[in-house]
Structures are given as structure tokens and as C-alpha cells.
């Protein structure tokens, strides 16, 4: 399992692996928002938590179609399915690698982008916390979507259509934590809900992902 994780990370770092692409996409979204809504700093400050969450979510989505498709095309998934690793472990490790290469950089870079959007002072801490707690769920749910569409020629758009509705609860609670934090309100309830959703998806969804992957491999 650790070998698989290291291999995935190595692949992401090498040429063409797409490491950092999500981050650049996040930066571009953050840059475009003021052009779309105007430069008033109080307006930007009020929408900053939501925009940053949406940007992170879309950046996550962007790299999902490569998550399993590359391994599918070159036959690696066939070989992994006949290897001693259970497929549940394979999809979990894949999700973890996706989070380390996409989610984690977003979490770390979010405060910088927060500055660009005039995020109020107390919001920075809660933005980072909410992203750190919420983005693992985005990776795990995204892995499920990638497993569903792995056999399809042009699965990218369908993948977005399937995954985005599943992101609704995470987005609502995540953005709520960041928004309340920015306004200096109490954040306990949405943060607990966000953490609950993340833990539940990590615990349960790999079974569904492995099941649909098995169906797709046959």
C-alpha cells in the first residue's frame, strides 16, 4: 500500500503528472472573481469564504478524471486487481494520493488567496481549518465518481455531473464554517457536521468505489 502511495506521488511530481495544476487553477479563479463582481473590498470580503471554497472544490474536480483513468488505460488496474492488495485499499490509497497532491496544497495556499480577496482577519484560521477538514471528503467522493466513469471514453463531463451534487453537503458546511469564522461567529456545529461527513465518507465510500471499479474491470 505504501509502495502504491509513493508511486502515485512520484508520478504526480514527474513531468506530465499535473502536480500543482490544481493550485494554479485555484489562483486563476481567485484572480477572475474580482473582475466579475467588481473591486469593492467590502463586497469581496463578504463573498471571500464562499469563493475560496468553490475555487478549492473546482480545483479538486479538475484532476479527478486522471485519478484512475491513466491506470485504467495502461492496464495497471487489471494488474492491481489481481495483486494481493484489496481493491478497497487501492482506491483509498488513490484518494489519499489525490488529497496530498491536490487538497493539501490548496489548504496551505488558501490564506494567500484569502489576502487577495480581503478575507477578514479571523477568517484565515477557520478557512484553513474548514478546508483541511473538508477536502479529504472531496477526494474520497471524487474517487467514487472516477471509479464510476473510468471505463468511458469521454467521462470527464459526466464525472462532473455525477460528483458535483455529491459535493453539496461538504460545500455547504465547509463554506459555512469559513463564513461564520470570518464574521467572528460560533463555528462548532457546522465544523462537527463537516468532520462527520468527511469521516463517514472515508469509512464507507471506498467500499462503493471498489465495487464499481470491479464492475468496470470485468
Amino acid at each position: 500500500m505504501i509502495a502504491l502511495l509513493f508511486r502515485d506521488l512520484k508520478l504526480a511530481m514527474r513531468a506530465g503528472g499535473g502536480f500543482g495544476l490544481g493550485l494554479v487553477f485555484f489562483l486563476i479563479v481567485t484572480t477572475l472573481v474580482p473582475f466579475a463582481v467588481g473591486p469593492q473590498s467590502d463586497l469581496l470580503a463578504s463573498i471571500a469564504p464562499g469563493v475560496l471554497w468553490l475555487g478549492a472544490l473546482l480545483a479538486c474536480l479538475l484532476s479527478l478524471d486522471r485519478l484512475l483513468a491513466l491506470d485504467w488505460e495502461d492496464g495497471t488496474l487489471d494488474l492491481l486487481a489481481t495483486a494481493p492488495l484489496p481493491l478497497e485499499a487501492v482506491v483509498s490509497v488513490k484518494a489519499l494520493a489525490h488529497w496530498i497532491t491536490t487538497g493539501l496544497p490548496l489548504v496551505l495556499a488558501a490564506p494567500v488567496f484569502g489576502v487577495l480577496l480581503n478575507l477578514p482577519g479571523p477568517g484565515f484560521f477557520w478557512l484553513v481549518v474548514s478546508l483541511a477538514v473538508g477536502t479529504p471528503a472531496l477526494s474520497v467522493v471524487g474517487t467514487f465518481g472516477a471509479a464510476l466513469t473510468v471505463g468511458l471514453k469521454r467521462g470527464g463531463l459526466l464525472l462532473s455531473l455525477l460528483v458535483l451534487p455529491l459535493y453539496v453537503p461538504t460545500l455547504i458546511f465547509g463554506a459555512e464554517v469559513a463564513r461564520r469564522g470570518a464574521q467572528g461567529m460560533e463555528t462548532g456545529t457546522p465544523l462537527l457536521m463537516l468532520g462527520g461527513i468527511t469521516l463517514a465518507t472515508i469509512a464507507l465510500l471506498p467500499f462503493a468505489s471498489a465495487a464499481v471499479l470491479r464492475v468496470n474491470l470485468r
Binding site: L11, G16, D74, G75, T76, P84
Partner: peptide, 29 residues
């Protein structure tokens, strides 16, 4: 758990070296 399967495609990652590719499968098995 006793079968090694080799199909039409080899499951080789172009950005890894030959040694790295083999080491990975050795570790998995």
C-alpha cells in the same frame, strides 16, 4: 491469490524508470 496475470497492456508507467517500475510491483507483491 496464486495467479500472475499479464494482458495486452503491461501496466508500465512511462515517467518511471525500468527499475522503479519493477520495484513497485515487487513491493505490491
Amino acid at each position: 491469490d496464486r495467479i500472475a496475470y499479464a494482458g495486452h497492456s503491461d501496466g508500465i508507467k512511462p515517467t518511471l524508470t525500468v527499475t522503479e517500475n519493477l520495484n513497485f510491483w515487487a513491493a505490491v507483491f
